[in-house]
Design a protein around this nucleic acid. Structure first.
Length: 591
RNA sequence: GCGUUCGUAGCUCAGCUGGAUAGAGCGACGGACUUCGAAUCCGUAGGUCGCAGGUUCGACUCCUGUCGGACGCACCA
């Protein structure tokens, strides 16, 4: 499809040039005539109007002709173009030049492409190294709904970029130090009595999270708790063995628990960075920058950067005692990462409340003279709010990730039971789990990342309509048809497939949708928006759904048509598999 | 106060680099299961695209202003 579109842009550009020459304005107008890349191509609103549409408005002024006249003139010229031969026919529809593609050839190439193992792969990012940092949890509590959005965004984006040809490296930057970590440790010392997660039958992350919450209780009982937390942080920094040991132990518990959640939801990383290893990085770079005049020193010895010239504020980079801050560390890690693996792009999947931080960070690296600073990108995503408002730890309104998956999976299991499909699906528990992930991931990726989103329980738990399970269901229906055929049912076994037979409007619209997959992948990669693929899946599912209802495949009386449509079903299924994987929606043969 | 960002149907969201009557899902109403699984399909109702200007042959899309919401502007991360 991509090639076809490119070909038609060439044809139209050529026709425009020929028309201009014919009017004797080769010299006068040639400068303003568009090349193939400059030709505007769109999709007609109704399929009856054609497969491709070229609006003629932009050329009307240059050519000194009405758009409608141009369209007719070009349509006539294209009739004689050898390249257009066999590709399709052009006709004028008012001010638009529309093209009807020759169905058989595109059908043949699309079905063949969809059968290949690399279906959906594109080469837009071939040879590029892209690093994606995401998730980055704290080691004092379990993951919540907000992390789920971050995780699926990062994972999906990574899969998409790699499908677009990039070499992707996924990094998890673990926040394992700081006062907040010490708080859970203090509370554990006060109330833990040496127990382990196993003793309480809890996942490690939930276990530690419990003590983090208990710190509030400790504060009430001991007014100096906050100070003690600060004191503990100091001890940690000094390498106090007792503090370090407890820290290691509790951090281990949390990571163990969080990794279970990652495994369960299909999230994986190539590399774990620990803030405890990196928090002192960057100080040298700042000191060098101070010499170069990028920063300045206050009288108290603290080091600052001034960004007022670009509409930002001033910012501290080194405390008066010379120690690093969050931003200093990020400078250091970006430099280290680039040294270790010279990336063409580094994407930070981090909440939009840190937009300011990243602006300053990127500007600082630029001022420090790193030309790759332009390759840094903050993929800011909005908060997940509840109908009742923002999630708040203190008010206990945080939606726990594990609990949520459990809840949705239980609902899916009930759905399977209600429909009496336990026998058909086999392992009902495993299927429920995959349906739950499909529902949650699709729900979280549907909305474009930048926007805050509302987590509506009822809506996200719904399996009907524009949902993950709807996508999975259509994939399962396609699988079901193929399965029956493989078992010898239906007329397709007696027939011979031929692309020419898939010429009806109904077949054609499904085929076109299938053919669009590579473009959707490329668009998603370019815009860094998995939601593009979520939308593609929905369109594919909706097209397929109405198509198979009215167009019998196996039951078709004509064996050749049955066999041909079966090939279309195969291509649809492949597209479901490929696109679903890219948005972390598990594909199901049956559900 | 300054900065960033969002504002599309009752609700939740799409709308590609500006282009042909603004699209889905939920909810409402009405239809379709002796036919490849009804977690489905078909139809009806519902929008001055926050508001006001501007650029353009053409603006939901770009620019300015304005109103409303969110977030940020720590020697926290």
């Amino acid at each position: 499809m991509v090639e076809t579109k490119a070909a038609w842009k060439r044809i139209v550009a050529r026709a425009l040039a020929a028309h201009a020459a014919g009017k004797g304005m080769a010299e006068a107008g040639s400068g303003s005539l568009p090349g193939p890349d400059g030709v505007v191509l769109e999709r007609p609103p109704k399929s009856e109007l054609g497969d491709l549409g070229f609006p003629m408005f932009p050329y009307a002024k240059i050519m000194r002709a009405a758009p409608a006249q141009l369209a007719s003139a070009l349509a006539a010229l294209i009739k004689g173009d050898p390249e257009a031969e066999g590709l399709g026919t052009a006709s004028a529809e008012g001010p638009y030049l529309n093209v009807r593609l020759s169905r058989a050839s595109l059908t043949a190439t699309t079905l063949a492409a969809a059968a290949s193992p690399s279906w959906g792969s594109v080469s837009g990012l071939a040879g590029k190294k892209v690093m994606v940092e995401f998730s980055s949890p704290n080691t004092n509590k379990p993951l919540h709904l907000g992390h789920l959005r971050n995780n699926v965004l990062g994972e999906s984006l990574s899969r998409i970029l790699s499908k677009a040809g990039a070499e992707v490296r996924k990094i998890n930057h673990i926040n394992d130090r700081g006062v907040h970590i010490c708080k859970s440790m203090l509370a554990y010392q006060a109330y833990g009595e040496g127990r382990s997660p196993a003793d309480e039958g809890l996942k490690g992350d939930h276990f530690v999270g419990k003590y983090y919450v208990l710190f509030n209780k400790l504060k009430e009982e001991d007014p100096s708790a906050e100070e003690k937390a600060q004191g503990m942080l100091l001890k940690w920094e000094q390498g106090d063995p007792e503090v370090r040991e407890l820290w290691q132990k509790m951090k281990g518990w949390v990571l163990e628990g969080i990794k279970v959640t990652y495994a369960r939801t299909g999230i994986a990383f190539d590399l774990y960075d620990f803030e405890s290893d990196t928090y002192e990085l960057g100080a040298d770079a700042v000191r060098e920058g101070l010499v170069k005049g990028v920063f300045y020193k206050e009288e108290d010895g603290s080091v600052w950067g001034n960004f007022e010239d670009i509409g930002l504020d001033r910012k501290v980079f080194l405390r008066k005692d010379g120690t690093s801050l969050y931003i200093t560390q990020d400078i250091g890690t970006a430099i280290e990462r680039h040294k270790a693996w010279p990336y063409d792009r580094l994407i930070y999947v981090v909440g939009n409340e840190q937009q300011y931080h990243f602006k300053v960070l990127f500007e600082t690296l630029k001022r420090l003279g790193y030309d790759w600073a332009k390759d840094l990108h903050h993929l800011a995503y909005g908060m997940v709010n509840l109908p009742s408002g923002r999630m708040k730890t203190r008010e206990g309104t945080v939606v726990d990730a594990d609990d949520l998956v459990d809840e949705v999976a239980a609902l899916a299991a009930k759905e399977i039971e209600d429909k009496g499909r336990e026998d058909a699906v086999g392992d009902s528990g495993a299927v429920s789990e995959r349906i739950a992930l499909g529902a949650l991931h699709y729900y979280l990726l549907q909305t474009s990342p930048i926007k805050d989103m509302l987590y509506d329980t009822a809506q996200s738990l719904s399996f009907t309509g524009d949902t993950g399970p709807y996508i999975q269901y259509m994939g399962a229906r396609a699988s079901s048809i193929l399965r029956k055929h493989a078992a010898g049912e239906g007329n397709a076994v007696k027939g011979k497939a031929s692309p020419d037979l898939l010429a009806s409007d109904a077949d054609w619209s499904v085929l076109k949708r299938v053919a669009e997959l590579p473009e959707a992948v490329q668009a998603a990669a370019d815009s860094m928006e998995p939601s593009v693929l979520a939308a593609y899946l929905h369109d594919l599912a909706a097209d397929f759904s109405s198509w198979y209802r009215d167009n019998p495949v196996l039951n078709n009386p004509d064996p050749d048509l049955a066999a041909s449509r079966l090939e279309l079903v195969r291509a649809v299924k492949r597209s479901f598999e490929v696109a679903s994987a890219l948005v972390c929606v598990p594909f199901l043969e049956t559900m």
